[in-house]
Each structure stands twice: as structure tokens, then as C-alpha cells.
């Protein structure tokens, strides 16, 4: 009975195709989120510094950064991947596969992260910022000793949403050569009408969403109540 199960085509597929695809997707997600987070944070700092509601309003600089952030954000991920593929080829050496997908995914993610973070940081009570100023804090001290610590719970929930959003984008990227769960679902489900495979992948994605959401909420509660 059990040996029969182990020898089914599904199980073979699972071991040989789905599991590697899961890891591939996780790697793409983790790296693009990591790089996206780093770049997004830097951009958010610039936005919060220069915003009309920010620490040192410089409307023209803000508008400039804002314009590019909006511009990149307006590309649907799948189009962005194709649109920047020449650049990807120069940077990564190839425009297909996991590594090649990380670049456009990062590119798509950092403006989203920057915007979420900007909103979180600017949400911090203006009086707290004023109090810090009144005690002689520099802009950078306000940024790192006041805004980031106070906004942390809100940043975490923004990041949770972003990671879930980009799990879907990472799957989508499978359609244009990135590999991972998305590619498997499309190959087996769309091209070969293997419903079992497809729904299995949907279920895996669903579980991944639950896990990310759960971790995000856990972390949020941790830092919120502290």
C-alpha cells in the first residue's frame, strides 16, 4: 500500500519537481526582499528627510525621488521583468533563471517597501519629533532613535504585506523564465492540464502565505507590546 503511494507519478513529481521549486521560490523571495528592503529603506530615509511633512523639507528633491519611485511602481512585475531583461543580462549574465529574476524582483520591490516605510515613519506623532528636536536631536538622531523605533510595528506589518504580495509576484515571474513554483504550476497546470500538480502548488502557496502572515503577526505583537 505504502509502496504503491511512493511510486505514484505524483510522488515522484513532488520530490523531483515541487520541492526544488519551493526552495527556488523561497530563495528568490528572500533575496529580492532582502535587497529590496535595504534599498527601500535608503529611499524611505531620503523621502522622509525631504518630504514636505518630513524632517528637512526639500520639495524639489522629494518630487524627483517620488517621480521615479512612482514610475517603477507603475510597471506590473511581469512587464518589468521583460522590460529590464537587457539590463539583467548585463548585470547577472543571463536573463533567465532564479538569479536573473532576483534583480527585477528587487527593482519592483524597493519602491513598494520605500512607500510603506515612508508612510510608517511619517505616521509617528509630530509632537514626539518636535520634542526630540527641542532636546537638541539632529535629523539623523530623530530618524534612527525616534522614527524607526517608534514606527517599527507599522514597518513590520507593511513588510508582511509586501512579502506576501511578492510571493505572488515571484510565482508570476515563473511565467517569464524565473523557475520556481510559478513555472511548475504553469507548465503542468496550464500546458499539460495536470490539475493535481497545479492545485498542489496553489495549496503550497496558500500555506506559505499563512506562514508569512503568521510570522509577521507574531513579530508585530512582540514589538508592539514589548
Amino acid at each position: 500500500m505504502s509502496s504503491a503511494l511512493f511510486e505514484t507519478a505524483f510522488f515522484k513529481n513532488f520530490n523531483m519537481i515541487i520541492i526544488p521549486a519551493i526552495f527556488s521560490t523561497i530563495r528568490m523571495l528572500v533575496f529580492s526582499m532582502l535587497f529590496g528592503f535595504i534599498i527601500g529603506t535608503l529611499v524611505a530615509i531620503l523621502l522622509v528627510m525631504t518630504s514636505p511633512y518630513g524632517l528637512k523639507p526639500k520639495p524639489s528633491v522629494y518630487k524627483f525621488i517620488s517621480f521615479w519611485v512612482n514610475m517603477i511602481r507603475s510597471f506590473p512585475v511581469i512587464i518589468l521583468i521583460v522590460a529590464v531583461s537587457p539590463l539583467t543580462r548585463i548585470l547577472v549574465g543571463t536573463s533567465v533563471g532564479e538569479k536573473a529574476a532576483i534583480f527585477p524582483l528587487t527593482l519592483a520591490a524597493f519602491p513598494v517597501i520605500a512607500r510603506y516605510m515612508e508612510a510608517s515613519l511619517l505616521e509617528v506623532d509630530k509632537n514626539i519629533v518636535m520634542a526630540a528636536r527641542a532636546f537638541g536631536a539632529s535629523d539623523m538622531q530623530i530618524m534612527f532613535k525616534v522614527l524607526f523605533p517608534e514606527a517599527l510595528p507599522s514597518i513590520i506589518s507593511g513588510m508582511t504585506t509586501t512579502v506576501i504580495l511578492f510571493l505572488a509576484s515571484t510565482a508570476l515571474a515563473g511565467a517569464v523564465g524565473a523557475g520556481g513554483l510559478g513555472a511548475v504550476a504553469l507548465t503542468y497546470g496550464y500546458q499539460r492540464f495536470d490539475d493535481v500538480m497545479m492545485y498542489c502548488i496553489v495549496a503550497i502557496l496558500f500555506v506559505m502565505v499563512l506562514i508569512i502572515q503568521g510570522l509577521g503577526e507574531l513579530l508585530y505583537k512582540r514589538v508592539k507590546t514589548r
Binding site: 506623532d125 520634542a131 525616534v146 517608534e150 514589548r226
Partner: peptide
């Protein structure tokens, strides 16, 4: 300086 809404850091 002190304020009407205290302006303490919540975290």
C-alpha cells in the same frame, strides 16, 4: 519642553 499630549515614545 513639555506638551499637551505628553509626546512620550510609546515603545
Amino acid at each position: 519642553m513639555i506638551f499637551q499630549n505628553f509626546a512620550l515614545l510609546e515603545r
